[in-house]
Design a protein around this nucleic acid. Structure first.
Lengths: 225, 225
DNA sequence: TTATAAACAGAACGTTCGGTCTTTTACAAG
DNA sequence: CTTGTAAAAGACCGAACGTTCTGTTTATAA
């Protein structure tokens, strides 16, 4: 909130204090994501984040007044890629719609987006929010916006063979529900082969019910509402 | 471990001290299940269980030397119904295989077994065990036995139209994975209608891939290995 | 150069956690 | 009734939690 000398849009590379702040916050959020992935939400204590990030307790508290705020901001960062936000390209768009089949789409979505460190960290926050009313209330708007965005994108990526517009949303929600279940399961068994097999079989079952739209990425993004 | 006057099988109604012990343990385990369902694993502290059960800290510690032991025994109790254990009849067997379609089976399985207080409590323990190595190690044998039992039962309930014996296991695992995902989702949205819709649509998709075997319940249980 | 505010450091706070301990109560055997 | 043993009660412990606090450093504007 300083060094606002240039009134032009803030696309200039940050310098001085802004750079320092950006670096510190990035270190902290990266540490939060790493902790979430490695030890889960309940073990992601402020002390552990502080140690992992290599910052002082004061720096941490200065940028994030509470653990909840820290988690909310981490979630925002994790949601950015799938929303095509500022920090990363549209991950789902890049993983899907290449025209080589829904099974291939889903395999890429799993390996390139969901079963990654950020993907697993995101699930950890969502799982924790189920039973944490305060956290849940705080992240609900972001999640709603995220869901809406998903539903928009899915309409431009796939369509139901019957032409039912609502059905494709239901079908994609089924896919997401399955993938969520797969996430929890993947933590237990250290057998990626079995996970892969389930994923392929499921995609093969879903394939006849969801046909891909063939169009360019630009077309996909032209109707953002 | 007392009043063993009668060497006959312990089917006699417990009296005296045994009754007191049974009641206290039952109160505690019931309280654990209630807490897990209502506030989740992380908030299910010993203090909360103690208050909910209406017993003292000493009584709790006397029967369960550690929180982990308390959770393990609760899990055993929760697994009993699906294993056809001593405390309850075979819940899955009762919910499925009535010959009125897989969609009906799955709807019953959801409403009568999974989306109940014990069902939700069970999921809470499983979710917690993902990131709790000690708990995970402790419950792994029970879960493996549980999985084996499920796989046995599923072979006598359904078969693949192609006759592939392995495939029916994969298909049922897909169903369980989906239902697990549905469990997590159901906590967020308080819209049972939408959950029901997803469930019905999913079951309809799976139906052609899983045909029911028509046989009696006795036949189903005759090959327990 | 100096004033000001943000960024950072780290000690200390009160609370709650799971676990241990001693004491009292209830039951069953002699 | 007396006595031995297990159940139940509740005080208590150290550790870890998230938060709050004061002090110090750094960067920027006047």
């Amino acid at each position: 909130m300083q060094s606002q000398i240039t009134p032009e849009a803030d696309d200039s590379p940050p310098t001085g204090n802004d750079l320092r702040v950006a670096r510190t916050k990035a270190r902290i959020i990266t540490a939060v994501i790493a902790c979430l992935d490695e030890v889960g939400y309940s073990e992601t204590s402020i002390n552990r984040v502080q140690t992992t990030a290599g910052v002082s307790r004061g720096a941490l508290t200065h940028h994030f007044p509470s653990k909840e705020a820290m988690m909310v901001e981490t979630l925002e960062r994790l949601l950015d890629p799938v929303r095509g936000g500022t920090h990363a390209p549209d991950a789902i768009g890049q993983a899907t719609g290449r025209g080589d089949g829904i099974a291939a789409d889903m395999a890429r979505l799993w390996s390139k987006v969901l079963n990654t460190r950020p993907g697993r960290a995101l699930v950890e926050i969502l799982v924790a929010a189920r039973t944490d009313a305060a956290l849940s209330a705080r992240i609900q708007p972001s999640l709603t916006a995220y869901n809406d965005q998903i539903n928009v994108n899915i309409h431009s990526l796939y369509q139901s063979p019957t032409g039912d517009a609502d059905d494709i949303q239901v079908l994609w929600t089924i896919c997401r529900t399955f993938l969520r279940g797969l996430h929890l399961q993947a933590r237990f068994e250290d057998n990626p082969k079995q996970t892969q097999r389930l994923l392929e079989r499921f995609a093969h079952i879903m394939e006849p019910h969801m046909t891909a739209r063939s169009q360019t990425k630009a077309e996909r993004h032209e109707k953002p509402v």
